[in-house]
Design a protein around this nucleic acid. Structure first.
Lengths: 145, 145
DNA sequence: CTATACCCGATCGGGTTGGTCGGCTTCCGC
DNA sequence: GCGGAAGCCGACCAACCCGATCGGGTATAG
């Protein structure tokens, strides 16, 4: 299960993609309203996305948020890792935060690790290839990837 | 990330498969020692596996645990669902515990749901097809499935 | 009858999650 | 150059979950 926060982040980004084109910044309160996300919580989330270089903001009157990259340059995997941490189901399978399993003697012969390595590969295959652009695109097209 | 508890459960089951063949029950304390799992915690886990009909026990002297089904009849998916709950990354994608996403208006057009449906399918594909027997079997053979 | 080993409910410390509050800083328009 | 709109930021909070431990209870072989 991905966290509520990650879901909000993805939703907000999709909303940003949709609302842009005009080039004008989108208000937090606007996203909050249209996506039914608690405003103050959304604030924190967008801030994180900003610090990660996915999004930028303008302050003051007529401020708001703008996507910083092209929608096809932002993957679901990147956002998920940022908000929820490692995607891998075991710490010893994570690329961004590898940690040895304290209890397993030899990684090469660990049966559990071996099975979940396949899971990790499969999910990464989807998440690191799917971008915001894909998500927003026609639902039929998404299936062909 | 799967929980420590689920990891313990899978480890314990694999140990059971390995230790059986003699037909004699395996002691909690034996599994606990060989797999480095806290004994009392392991107790709870095996109890759950028992209630789920995966394993059975005999009490008293010469007691212990025995796998109740053939190793190729116990999937990783079943164990994971039992211990950690739904495998699906979103509640609205779970088969065992479907819950509507309160915030998304229409599931058919929800982009996030759409992407994660593919993730769910991919992981289920691995977890529901892989059994304890596969895990214990020769590591080369596992790859061909 | 007693030692052994499983059964089971309660509890617990610490961390995470999902959010709220209040105030500060920046910027635009007048 | 000032007022207000908007983002920035840290502190705080209740609820929940996770990993584990404790203290017994109960069945069963010998």
């Amino acid at each position: 299960m991905i966290s509520q926060k990650a879901k909000y982040a993805l939703r907000a980004l999709v909303a940003l993609v949709r609302a842009s084109g005009h080039g004008e910044p989108v208000l937090i309160s606007e996203i909050s309203r249209s996506q039914a996300i608690p405003k103050k919580f959304l604030e924190q989330i967008l801030l994180e996305l900003k610090r990660a270089g996915i999004v930028m903001s303008r302050r003051g009157r007529a401020g708001g948020y703008v996507l910083l990259r092209a929608p096809d340059k932002v993957t679901f995997g990147e956002v998920l890792r940022l908000i929820d941490g490692p995607i891998a189901p075991l710490p010893c399978l994570s690329k961004i935060a590898y940690r040895r399993c304290s209890d397993c003697a030899d990684e090469g012969t660990c049966e559990i690790r071996h099975v979940f390595a396949r899971v990790a590969e499969a999910t990464r295959d989807v998440l690191d290839r799917t971008t915001l652009a894909d998500a927003v695109a026609d639902r039929v097209a998404v299936l062909q990837d």
